[in-house]
Design a binder for these strands. Structure first.
Lengths: 209, 209
DNA sequence: CTCAAGTAGTGATTTTTTTCCCGATTAAAG
DNA sequence: CTTTAATCGGGAAAAAAATCACTACTTGAG
């Protein structure tokens, strides 16, 4: 049901945050309804912003009561596609790869890392969170056999674009890049560059100001 | 000289990207000038956007030639504070902490991680990239003695806010949080939450669309 | 020396995003 | 049943961001 129109990235970020807040509320404090004002206070936004965002994804509240937290969570999850299931391959079994794969929340978003690949023969064969690190030359087989849609890049900067290109050639649908470079991709592939230097710049800027 | 007015976050992100592009150009291809069109093509933006951004930080180009890449880089670095020096403490010597500390580019942004702290006695005393992991109870001493301005949080979700509060109490200036939670801080502390779930949501959304 | 073409600079315009505001609705109290 | 207070919904206004369109400048060619 999550079609209608493309959600803007900023909206998407806010929704994720609302969702977190709601889940905390619902799970931790057993509150069933929340007002836009409460959400706004948490997310440090305007109340109207929250109401508009929720309206945009079709959540309805009731006057004098607020929104049902469970509604908000389930609608966000539905619209954002968290309840579907996606397979991913992680390329690059270094420290960063290890850290990312141990992130305790992929499944909650529908993401399943089904394979790990690394070009270093010293790493292949070892186990990382229940998966055997595969050699690079099996990437194609793996992606095709498992019908993998997402590639997670935790390779060094120098091999990031090359690896991306290879995955694109294997008709991967999306890339999540952690190498310090902006990967370029064709229009039909979605890429998210998780670039530490943006954060670094943000901090340096604020510390210097 | 980096005062005048607060740069918007979106502008900041674009500037970081310009800077990367320029550095690649200058270093790799020995090109000394670039046109706004080239930068725009790389960053997938409008040419005017690039010109406005560069004008905003005071970079001047010359008609028929473009901008001097070296100018752009040095002005961005100056305005964003990369040439100053900041001390940071990393709290949480787990996998993620290890991955982050080994990121090969902190120094380029003026950031120096001068201490690592962890609450787990099994980790204290061990070495991570040249630093001895210190026990948690020495955090205060370390922050004060070294005059640390930035705290990098790579602790588990459950201890993130507590650790943040402690650092805030030690009058830290900024926090870089990698735990999957939005840290809340007083107005005078700058926080950047590096929240993997935003990326995850972005990907799930695009894969489902 | 003049002309042509490429490029920066910038004011105007459009689009998008955010905020403001108020009427409508609901639940609870009297 | 009526009143009151809290809250949503959505239109309007304001602010911010992006894009457009044009001018002016600079270089290199003829």
């Amino acid at each position: 049901m999550n079609e209608s129109k493309r959600l803007k990235r900023s909206l998407l970020e806010r929704l994720v945050r609302y969702c977190h807040f709601m889940q905390d509320k619902v799970l931790d404090e057993e509150i069933t309804t929340v007002s836009s004002a409460q959400v706004a206070a948490y997310a440090e936004l305007d109340e109207s912003q929250v109401r508009k965002d929720l309206a945009a994804i079709g959540v309805r509240g009731t006057p004098r009561v607020g929104y049902r937290a469970a509604d908000v969570v389930s609608t966000i999850r539905d619209r954002l596609g968290f309840d579907e299931s996606y397979k991913a391959v992680l390329v690059g079994a270094g420290r960063l790869g290890g850290a990312i794969i141990s992130y305790p929340g992929f499944a909650k978003y529908g993401l399943h890392i089904v394979a790990i690949v690394d070009s270093d023969p010293r790493k292949t064969g070892s186990m990382i969170s229940g998966l055997v690190v595969q050699p690079m030359h099996r990437l194609g087989q793996i992606v095709r056999r498992e019908q993998i849609e997402l590639g997670i890049l935790t390779v060094p900067r120098a091999s990031a674009q090359v690896t991306a290109d290879r995955l694109i050639d294997l008709e991967i649908k999306a890339l999540w890049n952690f190498a310090p470079i902006w990967i370029s991709v064709p229009d039909d592939v979605h890429v998210r560059n998780e670039h530490l230097s943006v954060g670094l710049a943000d901090l340096a800027y604020h510390l210097s100001g």
